[in-house]
Design a protein around this nucleic acid. Structure first.
Length: 277
DNA sequence: TACTTTGAGGGAAGGTAATT
DNA sequence: AATTACCTTCCCTCAAAGTA
């Protein structure tokens, strides 16, 4: 037995079923008891070699259903279902067996009274340790290891990236910016006055919620991220430029201020707090 | 009721650029 | 050069709506 699969079984994984090819396409033979369990760690093995490790909070059957009949396009974020469906079918067509292993009934854990998900922690550890080929991050690691470093090849790194962003993914990225408008835009003077009144208060950046403090030093806004405690200064003119653009665009996306300031996230967070005050 | 599809969101990793 | 914070992309899962 391959070492990876033996390690899985040592960890408590049990045979739960297998994938088969039928006239209708991909078929699933699944142990009814395990198939109806929730919070399951599962794994696929091709000819006994570990290929994929995943986790589901719903029942194993419903999760595997996603692989059995994936949507036509990956726009909905179901790229994993499509990819694994293709991998399973390809393996079966080559005459290989694709077995399903599962680990359920994990003991409950807690730390200082807080529940700890052993399944969630174990999944990441298993993927990192065993590097199953079908787990995407492993593919990324392999691809990256084969990609020559910048300047070492005539092939441009950027040329490997898609020219146009995936609309769905872009929407997701934008969603992380929390573009919630404000009712009014302050002047630089107003914002500086507000910052003076908030000396010692902790603010949070929009996206990563990184805590920082702010102080007015002469004609500068001095920002101090709590993570580093190093000071970053933003001139009154730069703050004013950010505010002018904010008034014009109503945008809270950092990329819209790249050419003006690299500290726009702090200024905008300050505006939000001012508006809420 | 079971199956299928879709939308949303969290997390990780790498890249970029300012600051020290 | 190292550090830091933000941006982008990708991977993955879940919940819910739609459909048979």
């Amino acid at each position: 037995m391959p070492i990876n699969l033996a390690k899985l079984q040592d960890a408590g994984f049990e045979p739960a079923g297998k994938w088969i090819l039928t006239q209708q396409g991909l078929g699933l033979e699944l142990n009814d008891v395990i198939g109806n369990k929730k919070d399951v760690l599962y794994a696929f093995a091709v000819d006994g070699a570990l290929r994929y490790v995943g986790k589901t909070a719903s029942t194993l059957r419903s999760r595997l259903q996603g692989y059995k009949t994936p949507p036509v396009t990956a726009n909905s974020g179901a790229s994993t279902n499509i990819k694994n469906h293709q991998n399973i079918v390809a393996a079966l067509k080559q005459g290989s067996t694709v077995d399903i292993y599962a680990l359920h009934a994990l003991p409950s854990q807690e730390h200082c009274g807080f529940a700890v998900s052993l399944a969630a922690g174990l999944e990441g550890s298993l993927i990192k340790d065993m590097t199953p080929l079908w787990n995407g991050r492993v593919l990324t690691q392999i691809r990256d290891s084969l990609t020559p470093p910048k300047n070492s090849s005539a092939i441009s790194h950027s040329a490997e990236k898609p020219v146009q962003k995936n609309a769905s993914l872009q929407g997701k990225a934008d969603a992380g910016n929390h573009d919630v408008g404000v009712s009014e835009i302050p002047s630089a003077e107003t914002l500086f006055a507000f910052a003076r009144s908030q000396k010692g208060e902790t603010f949070l950046t929009q996206r990563d919620k990184s805590p920082f403090r702010v102080e007015v030093v002469g004609n500068y806004l001095e920002v101090t991220p709590e993570s580093s405690l190093t000071h970053r200064r933003e001139s009154r003119d730069s703050v004013a430029a950010v505010l002018v653009r904010l008034a014009k665009t109503a945008s809270f996306k950092m990329s819209d201020y790249k050419d003006l300031s690299f500290n726009a996230s702090y200024v905008l967070a300050l505006v939000k707090r001012w508006d809420a005050s």
